[in-house]
């Protein structure tokens, strides 16, 4: 028998006093991604038949490096926030939820490191390292 009152069940363990940051970061990263995505799409469209040398040259120009890194890292950041929301929405088994969110964060962090390293290798070693 369950004698807990409906109010006790509705209150549960109370508010965790968090969530605003997550929500705000999602909005801000979306807004910031808008011009970055435009820039990225526009730049790619200017390089339709680029060969390896042209592409590494493009990546190595300081502004491109900076914007490219911002674009990659911000997309991954925005993506991880979104995936966390999706998992919280649809996964109702606690341990799968916890492992899922942790997993998404670790994989994204790994992707962020890997892609930054790739860009920096091209910039610092000219892509021939």
């Amino acid at each position: 028998m369950n004698f807990q009152s409906p109010l006790a069940r509705a209150r549960g363990l109370g508010s965790v006093r968090a969530g605003s940051h997550h929500w705000w970061r999602q909005r801000v990263s979306a807004v910031a991604l808008f011009p970055l995505t435009l820039w990225f799409g526009f730049s790619l469209s200017l390089l339709p038949q680029a060969n390896y040398a042209m592409l590494t040259h493009w990546v190595s120009s300081p502004w491109n490096t900076l914007l490219l890194l911002s674009f990659i890292l911000l997309s991954l950041f925005h993506g991880v926030l979104g995936l966390q929301t999706v998992i919280e929405d649809y996964v109702h088994t606690d341990w799968i939820k916890i492992i899922g969110i942790l997993g998404v964060k670790l994989v994204t962090a790994f992707l962020a490191l890997a892609s930054s390293l790739a860009v920096l290798r091209i910039v610092l070693l000219g892509g021939h390292g």
């Binding site: 109370g14 508010s15 965790v16 006093r17 968090a18 969530g19 605003s20 997550h22 929500w23 919280e88």
Partner: peptide, 12 residues
């Protein structure tokens, strides 16, 4: 507001 700030109570 304190009571509402929660990923589930509000931010779903």
């Amino acid at each position: 507001l304190n009571e509402l700030e929660d990923p589930f109570k509000l931010y779903r």
